[in-house]
Design a protein around this nucleic acid. Structure first.
Length: 804
RNA sequence: GCCGGUGUGGUGGAACAGGCAGACACAAGGGACUUAAAAUCCCUCGGACUAAACAUCCGUACCGGUUCAAGUCCGGUCACCGGCACCA
C-alpha cells in the first residue's frame, strides 16, 4: 500500500479548520487546560526546524488532553516588535509594519503545514494597536503606582553612527555596523521597579512547578543577600557608605574601592591631587560594559585617590581609597571595603598595589600566598572584640556594635536591578507619557489609548540619540492633559519584553475591547497550566512576566499570584555539524523541505524522537527515515487486519504496558521514550502477524497526538467510528494486566553478574535466592566460599556476598 | 570571571528512587526476494580473548571516595552548551 502524505495531510488540516476542532470553548463546564508556548518572533529567515520542537511537544500534550475530555486552550501569536525588523526595514527601505506582515504570513503558513492544533481564532500580534493598547494601559498603572520612574543610566553610544546601540550590536567594544568606538554615555531612561518585587519573586517560586535549574537560576539572578551597610568616615569629614555580606571581616579591611561613577569623586575633586589620572581612568572605564569590567581574573586596574583616605570604624586606621572598574555603581552602594586575605579579587588587587593583607579568619594556608576564601565556618582572629567567635556569631555581634555606635545597620541587598524600560527606537510601543514643563511627567488619559505609533518617513536613529519619533514634531507637540499647557510626548518606545510580559492573558479573551481580558475568562483560564520555553528566557522574559503578573494581581486585575503553574524547557535543535543553527554556519534546515519530502507526521515524530526533550540534539536527516518507516509500517497494518473487538491474550500485557507508558511519558515530557514504546509495540504486533480492529483502534489513539493526520485517515478508512478527535476516548490501562508472570533477574556474586534467570514474578526473597543458588555457574562461584550476606531486590536481582 | 546545565557504542539516544549499561532507532556488514536495482523481510553489530560458542576480563569525559552494588551519590579536574540585564 502506498501512503500519500501530501493528500492525507492537506485533507485533515482542511477538515480541522472547517470544523474549528481546536477552538477552545467559551462557556464550558469541562475542566480547562491551558498549554502555552513562547510565541515566536517572526524573523525574516522564516522557521527553522528548531521552532516546531516545543510547538509539537505541547501539541502532543494538548491533543492528549482533548482526548481525555479537557477544554484545551492552545494559542499562538506574534512577538513582532523588535530590533531585527527595524534594522531590516532601515536597510531595505520598507516600513517595519510591512516587513512584519510579510514575515508573519510566512511563519503562519509554515506552522500550519505541521498540523499543530493551535486555536487560530485567538491569534494575537504585539504590534497590533488593539493589543498594545493594553500594554500601554499596564504601563500607565505601573506609573500611577510609582513603579515607573526616570533615571540616568548608561547606554552604549556609537561615536560614529551617533546612536544608541543594543549590547548585541557592540562586538569587542566596537560598533557592529561601522567598527567605530563605542562608549558608555549617560541618558535619562524609564525604569520599572522590579526590585520592589524581588522578595516575592523568590518566595513565590514555592507556589509553582518549575524545573529546579530554572528556580535556581532565578534565585541566583535576584541574588538576595543579608549583610550590612557600614559607614566609613573619610579624611574629608564626610561618609563613604559600603555594603558587605561579611561585616565580620571588618578588621581585615585594608583599603576601599569605589566605582569610577561614584559621586564622591566629583565631590572631592578639588582635594584629589591626582585628579587628572582619576579622570583618565573614568574615561577608560566608560568604554567597557559591566560584563567586561567584572569578567575574567585578568589584570585588575585601578587608581589610588591621592589626598583622601577612609577611616576603618572598628580600629580607626586610615586606609587608602581606590577607584577601580570591578566595582559597579549599580550594585550595593557602588563602594566596597576590601579584605584581601579572604577574597580573590581583593587579594590580586592588594598584591598588585602592594597593600597589607591581614588574616581575620583562621583555617587557611598562608594568606600572603593565597586568599583564604572558603571561610564561612572559621573562627575570627586579629579582630579585637570579635576574635575567637565563629563567623556566624561574629556577624551578629558586629552588626550589634555597628548599630550601637551609629556607624552601620543590617541590610538586605539584591543583585537584581531595576528594569531599563525605554529604547531610542521606532519599532516598539510608544510610552504613553507627556512631559509638561509645569506638571512634569503626566500620563495620557486611558481614553486616549492606544497611543498609536505614527507613520514616519524615516525610522533611522537620529544624530542626537533620540528616538526617530522625536523628529515627528506634529506628533511630539501636544498639550498637557493636566494643565492644558504646551507639552511634548515621550519619544522613547518600550522594549520588546513589554508585549511578551502579559500576552498569555490576552489569549484568554483576545477580542475584548474594554479590558485586557474579561474577568470571567481570567477566572476560568488562569493560571497557565503548562508553559514551555527555552532556558535562555529564564532570567529575563520569565522573570519580567512574573513581575507584571504580580503587579496585576496586586491591583486586582488577575486572580492568581503566579502566571504559570508549570514550566518546562526544551533543548535546542542543532545543525548536523553539532553547532547552533545559523545562516552564517550554513547548517539551517527548513521544515518545509522535510514536510514536503516525508510529511508532517514524520517530521513531528522525528522532532519528538530525536532525543531527550530537555537537552540539545543535532539534526540528522538519515534518522528521519526511521520515523517515516514507522509511519508506513503503521499504515500497512491495514493489510494484516483481522476481526476481533478485544485485545488478544498474547498481546494484552504489551498493550496495557504501552498505554501506561505512553500516557506517563507524555506527562513527564519523555516523548522520545513514548515513541520508542510505540515502536516496541509495533514490533510485538509484527511478530504476532496480524492485528484486530480493537488493537488497531487503541494503537491509533495512542499514536494520534504524535501523528494526527495518518491516524485519523486510518481510523476513517477502517470505519472505526466518528473520528479520533471527535470521540475523545484516551484508552485506560489495567495495572494488573501490565505485569508478566515470569521475569528475568540478574544473579550477582560479590556484585559481578554470574547468571540471568527467569523466576516467577511473585517469588519472595528466599525462593529467588534458592533458585539463584541452584544455577551451575553461580554454584561454581560459591565453591569454598562463606556466604556473608544475601540481597534480593524484587524483580531485579540477587546479590550474594561471599568471602573465602 | 560569575550563575545554571551537559559529557554513555560508528551515530541519536535508553536505563524507575543506587540494582542486569546500551531499550528504541540510524548507519554499517551479511543473507532472502529480484534479470537487476530500489523497497521490504531475516541475521550480526561496545572492546579484549576465542575458529566459534560458553566462560572470563575491561568499558558510561578524567582522577579519587562512599557502598554488597555507582552512568546514577560525594570531592576534585577537564571539555562543551545556555545566561550575564538594549538579540529574542
Amino acid at each position: 500500500m502506498k501512503y500519500d502524505h501530501k493528500e492525507v495531510e492537506a485533507k485533515w488540516q482542511k477538515i480541522w479548520e472547517e470544523k474549528g476542532c481546536f477552538h477552545a470553548e467559551e462557556n464550558s463546564d469541562k475542566e480547562k487546560f491551558y498549554a502555552l508556548i513562547e510565541f515566536p518572533y517572526p524573523s525574516g529567515q522564516g522557521l527553522h526546524v528548531g521552532h516546531p520542537r516545543p510547538y509539537t511537544a505541547l501539541d502532543v500534550v494538548s491533543r492528549k488532553k482533548r482526548l481525555q475530555g479537557y477544554n484545551v486552550l492552545y494559542p499562538i501569536g506574534w512577538d513582532a516588535f523588535g530590533l531585527p525588523t527595524e534594522n531590516y526595514a532601515i536597510k531595505n527601505h520598507i516600513h517595519p509594519e510591512e516587513v512584519t506582515k510579510k514575515n508573519v504570513a510566512r511563519f503562519k503558513k509554515q506552522i500550519q503545514s505541521l498540523g499543530i492544533s493551535f486555536d487560530w481564532s485567538r491569534e494575537i500580534n504585539t504590534t497590533d494597536p488593539d493589543y498594545y493598547k493594553w500594554t500601554q494601559w499596564i504601563f500607565l498603572q505601573l506609573f500611577k503606582k510609582g513603579l515607573a520612574y526616570k533615571k540616568e543610566m548608561a547606554v552604549n553610544w556609537c561615536t560614529s553612527c551617533k546612536c544608541v546601540l543594543a549590547n548585541e550590536e557592540v562586538v569587542n567594544g566596537v560598533c557592529e555596523r561601522c567598527g567605530s568606538e563605542v562608549v558608555r554615555r549617560v541618558k535619562s531612561q524609564w525604569m520599572l521597579k522590579i526590585t520592589e518585587y524581588a522578595d516575592r519573586l523568590i518566595s513565590d517560586l514555592d507556589l509553582v512547578d518549575y524545573p529546579p535549574r530554572v528556580k535556581a537560576q532565578q534565585i541566583n539572578w535576584i541574588g538576595k543577600s543579608m549583610g550590612a551597610e557600614v559607614d566609613f568616615k573619610t579624611t574629608e569629614g564626610d561618609i563613604l557608605k559600603i555594603y558587605t555580606t561579611r561585616c565580620d571581616t571588618l578588621f581585615g579591611a585594608t583599603y576601599m574601592v569605589i566605582s569610577p561613577e561614584h559621586p564622591c569623586i566629583e565631590k572631592w575633586s578639588s582635594r584629589i591631587k591626582n585628579i587628572d589620572e582619576v579622570r583618565a581612568y573614568q574615561n577608560e572605564a566608560s568604554k567597557k560594559s559591566d560584563f567586561e569590567r567584572t569578567e575574567l581574573a585578568k589584570d585588575k586596574t585601578g587608581v589610588m585617590l591621592d589626598g583622601v583616605k577612609a577611616i576603618n570604624p572598628v580600629n580607626n586606621t586610615e586606609i587608602p581609597i581606590f577607584v577601580s572598574d570591578y566595582v559597579l555603581i549599580s550594585y550595593g552602594t557602588g563602594a566596597i571595603m576590601a579584605v584581601p586575605a579572604h577574597d580573590t579579587r581583593d587579594w590580586e588587587f592588594a598584591k598588585k598595589f602592594d597593600l597589607p593583607i591581614i588574616e581575620v579568619v583562621k583555617g587557611g594556608e598562608d594568606v600572603q600566598k593565597e586568599a583564604f576564601t572558603d571561610c564561612a565556618t572559621g573562627v575570627l582572629v586579629n579582630s579585637g572584640f570579635i576574635s575567637g567567635l565563629s563567623v556566624e556569631d561574629a556577624k551578629k555581634k558586629m552588626i550589634g556594635w555597628l548599630t550601637e555606635n551609629g556607624v552601620g545597620t543590617a541590610k538586605t541587598n539584591f543583585k537584581l536591578r531595576d528594569w531599563v524600560f525605554s529604547r531610542q527606537r521606532y519599532w516598539g510601543e510608544p510610552i504613553p507619557i507627556v512631559h509638561c514643563d509645569k506638571c512634569g511627567y503626566v500620563p495620557i488619559p486611558e481614553s486616549e489609548l492606544p497611543l498609536k505609533l505614527p507613520m514616519v518617513d524615516s525610522y533611522e536613529p537620529t544624530d542626537t540619540g533620540e528616538s526617530p519619533l522625536s523628529k515627528m514634531t506634529d506628533w511630539v507637540e501636544t498639550t498637557c492633559p493636566h494643565c492644558g499647557g504646551k507639552a511634548h510626548r515621550e519619544t522613547d518606545t518600550m522594549p520588546q519584553w513589554a508585549g511578551s510580559s502579559w500576552y498569555f492573558l490576552r489569549y484568554m479573551d483576545p477580542h475584548n475591547d474594554t479590558a485586557l481580558a474579561g474577568k470571567e475568562a481570567l477566572e476560568y483560564w488562569s493560571p497557565v497550566d503548562w508553559y514551555n520555553g527555552g532556558m535562555e528566557h529564564t532570567t529575563l522574559h520569565l522573570l519580567y512576566s512574573r513581575f507584571w503578573h504580580k503587579f496585576l494581581y496586586d491591583i486586582g486585575v488577575v486572580p492568581t499570584p503566579e502566571p504559570y503553574a508549570k514550566r518546562t524547557s526544551h533543548g535546542m535543535i542543532l545543525g548536523s555539524d553539532g553547532g547552533k543553527m545559523s545562516k552564517s554556519r550554513g547548517n539551517v534546515v527548513n521544515p518545509d523541505d522535510i514536510v514536503e519530502q516525508y510529511g508532517a507526521d514524520t517530521m513531528r515524530l522525528y522532532e519528538m524522537f530525536i532525543g531527550d526533550f530537555e537537552k540539545a540534539a543535532p539534526w540528522n536527516e538519515a534518522s528521519i527515515r526511521g520515523c517515516r518507516r514507522f509511519v508506513e509500517r503503521y499504515f500497512n497494518l491495514q493489510t494484516k487486519l483481522i476481526e476481533g473487538n478485544t485485545i488478544r491474550p498474547e498481546l494484552e500485557s504489551a498493550f496495557h504496558r504501552t498505554i501506561k507508558k505512553v500516557g506517563e511519558d507524555i506527562e513527564n515530557i519523555k516523548f522520545n521514550t513514548a515513541i520508542a514504546a510505540l515502536m516496541a509495540l509495533m514490533n510485538d504486533i509484527t511478530e504476532a502477524g496480524s492485528i484486530n480492529k480493537k488493537e488497531y483502534a487503541i494503537f491509533s489513539i495512542l499514536m494520534n497526538p504524535f501523528a494526527p493526520h495518518i491516524t485519523e485517515e486510518v481510523w476513517s478508512t477502517m470505519q472505526l467510528g466518528e473520528g479520533i478527535i471527535a470521540e475523545q476516548s484516551w484508552p485506560v490501562y489495567d495495572e494488573s494486566k501490565c505485569k508478566e508472570n515470569e521475569i528475568e533477574i540478574a544473579v550477582q556474586v560479590n556484585g559481578k553478574i554470574r547468571a540471568k534467570l527467569m523466576i516467577p514474578a511473585d517469588a519472595d526473597q528466599s525462593t529467588a535466592i534458592e533458585i539463584a543458588k541452584n544455577d551451575s555457574n553461580v554454584k561454581k562461584s560459591l565453591e569454598n566460599m562463606n556466604i556473608i550476606k544475601e540481597i534480593y531486590v524484587k524483580g531485579r536481582l540477587v546479590n550474594i556476598v561471599v568471602k573465602p
